[in-house]
C-alpha cells in the first residue's frame, strides 16, 4: 500500500489519564475511501482514539498520522483536512438549522455560506425545518444536522463517534444511509460504534478494541475466518423485533 492510499496510520499509540492507562499500544491503518469501524464496549477507549486523531487530545507516545500529517507536530494541517461529528450532537439549539450551517461555513472561511447551507439542508431533508430553532428538532433531525455540519467544507476524512447511539431505529437507518452515501462519494469514514450490526452493515474493515488494545482487525470475511466454519442447519426464520417494528412504522425509511 503506498503512502497516498492511507488516510490514517497509528503505531504504538499510548494514552493514560493520570495513572489509568486507556490506550496500551494501539496499531491500525485506514485506507482512503473506505469505511473503518472501531468496535468496542463502553470505556474501551474508542472516544480517546477519536480525540487523538482529531487533535483534541495529545498522545503520550506513538506515531499518529492523519492525511499525511503528524497530529502532534502539525495539528493545524490535520484540522484542515478532517471533520468530526462527536458523540453528542454538537448543534447550537438556540440557532436555526440554517444558522448552524452558515456558522460552520463562516468558521471554515468559505465563499457563499448561505448557498452551502441551502444545499446541505436540501440534501439532508431539512429544508422545511431550516428556519426553526434546533431546540424543536427530533433526535434524528439533530443528528442529520450534526452530520451535515461536518460536511461543510467537503473534508475527505470524516470522523463519526457513535453516530447512532440514542437514536430510534428509523433515525438509525437514515444515518446508515448517509454514511453509505459518503463512502460512495469517495470519502473516508472513521466510525466508532458499540453495535455489531452497525459495523457489519457499514464497514469495509473492522477493528475490535478491548481494554486499550486492538484485539483483532480485518474485513468481515477475514474476521469470520478466524472462527470455525459455520455448520449448515435448518431453522425456522423468526422475525426480529426490529424487523417487526420497522415494517410497522418504518415505511418512511423505505421511501
Amino acid at each position: 500500500m503506498s503512502q497516498h492510499e492511507i488516510a490514517i496510520s497509528v503505531h504504538g499509540l499510548r494514552k493514560s489519564y493520570k495513572d489509568l492507562p486507556v490506550l496500551a499500544g494501539v496499531d491500525f491503518q485506514v485506507e482512503k475511501g473506505s469505511i473503518f469501524a472501531l468496535l468496542g464496549p463502553n470505556g474501551s477507549g474508542k472516544t480517546t482514539i477519536v480525540k487523538i486523531l482529531t487533535t483534541l487530545l495529545k498522545p503520550d507516545s506513538g506515531q499518529v498520522w492523519v492525511n499525511g500529517f503528524d497530529v502532534t507536530a502539525s495539528p493545524d494541517h490535520v484540522r484542515q483536512s478532517i471533520s468530526l461529528t462527536g458523540q453528542f450532537a454538537a448543534v447550537d439549539e438556540i440557532l436555526t438549522g440554517r444558522e448552524n450551517l452558515v456558522l460552520i461555513a463562516r468558521l471554515r472561511h468559505l465563499q457563499g455560506p448561505q448557498q452551502i447551507a441551502d444545499d446541505l439542508l436540501h440534501r439532508f431533508g431539512l429544508t422545511e425545518a431550516a428556519n426553526r430553532k434546533v431546540s424543536t428538532y427530533s433526535g434524528g433531525m439533530r443528528r442529520r444536522l450534526d452530520i451535515a455540519m461536518s460536511l461543510v467544507g467537503d473534508s475527505q476524512l470524516i470522523f463519526l463517534d457513535e453516530p447512532t447511539t440514542g437514536l430510534d431505529p428509523e433515525a438509525r437507518i437514515e444515518v446508515w444511509k448517509i454514511v453509505k452515501e459518503l463512502a460512495d462519494s469517495g470519502k473516508t469514514v472513521f466510525l466508532t460504534t458499540q453495535y455489531l450490526d452497525e459495523a457489519e452493515q457499514l464497514a469495509n474493515r473492522i477493528a475490535i478494541l478491548q481494554e486499550g488494545k486492538i484485539i483483532v482487525s480485518g474485513t468481515l470475511e477475514e474476521l469470520k475466518k478466524l472462527f470455525p466454519p459455520a455448520k449448515v442447519e435448518y431453522i425456522e426464520k423468526q422475525l426480529t423485533l426490529e424487523e417487526i417494528f420497522l415494517s410497522l412504522v418504518g415505511k418512511k425509511a423505505n421511501n
Binding site: T55, L56, I82, G86, E93
Partner: peptide
C-alpha cells in the same frame, strides 16, 4: 457540555 467547543477545536480556527 454540548460538545460545541470540541467541534470548534477540531476545525481549523
Amino acid at each position: 457540555q454540548r460538545g460545541i467547543f470540541e467541534r470548534f477545536h477540531s476545525m481549523p480556527i
